[in-house]
């Protein structure tokens, strides 16, 4: 290193602090790696753009005109769920244990939320958009899906039920 005519101070870091900086980066990188593995190898993924709809007509045309559950193949289901102030249609979904179900959710009015207890199904429900996630129902039981975004006075009453039968 050849010094220039005026010496410029260089960045000095205490070696303890340097150690902490490295530790912090290693820790954060570990977290980043772990979430990448959960996404890429374990299939725990986030909602992706699915379909744009017109919230003013979505209740009368297209797949959400008749919300409900359909069996696509043995053990393979899909459900179209309409969110509106302040209920989900349908309010109750029944599927047998071990089946895989894809949930499509939209809203015909304001923003809502959709969280299915005991699973990683957690989606914003936004007018104009369709939210989609899939999961496998392993354990029989009754699970609530709850609206988790403020949607007006009756928000606290907005929920539905998924029943996994034997």
């Amino acid at each position: 290193m050849t010094p220039s005519q005026t010496p410029q101070p260089s960045l000095q870091i205490d070696r303890y602090e340097r150690g902490w900086m490295i530790a912090a980066i290693v820790l954060l990188a570990t977290f980043a790696l772990a979430v990448t593995v959960a996404g890429a190898a374990m299939g725990i993924q986030l909602p992706a753009p699915e379909l744009r709809v017109n919230p003013q007509t979505v209740a009368s045309e297209g797949p959400f005109a008749q919300p409900g559950v359909r069996e696509l193949a043995p053990g393979r289901y899909e459900a179209y769920i309409m969110s509106q102030t302040w209920l989900f249609i349908p309010r109750e979904i029944k599927i047998p244990k071990g089946s895989e179900i894809t949930l499509y959710v939209t809203s015909k009015d304001v923003q809502h939320g959709f969280k299915l207890e005991g699973t990683n199904i957690n989606m914003m429900v936004i007018p104009g958009q369709v939210s989609r996630l899939t999961f496998r129902a392993e354990k029989p039981g009754t699970y609530n899906f709850i609206c988790h975004e403020y949607c007006g006075l009756g928000h606290a009453a907005m929920f539905g039920t998924l029943i996994v039968t034997e």
Binding site: L28, F31, V35, T36, A38, G39, I44, Q45, L46, G113, K115, N120, I121, N122, M124, H148, E149
Partner: peptide, 16 residues
């Protein structure tokens, strides 16, 4: 905050 920021880990806590 780091939990919230953690991509899919956010599914556990989002809007709760």
């Amino acid at each position: 905050g780091i939990v919230n920021a953690s991509y899919n880990v956010n599914l556990v806590v989002h809007n709760t």
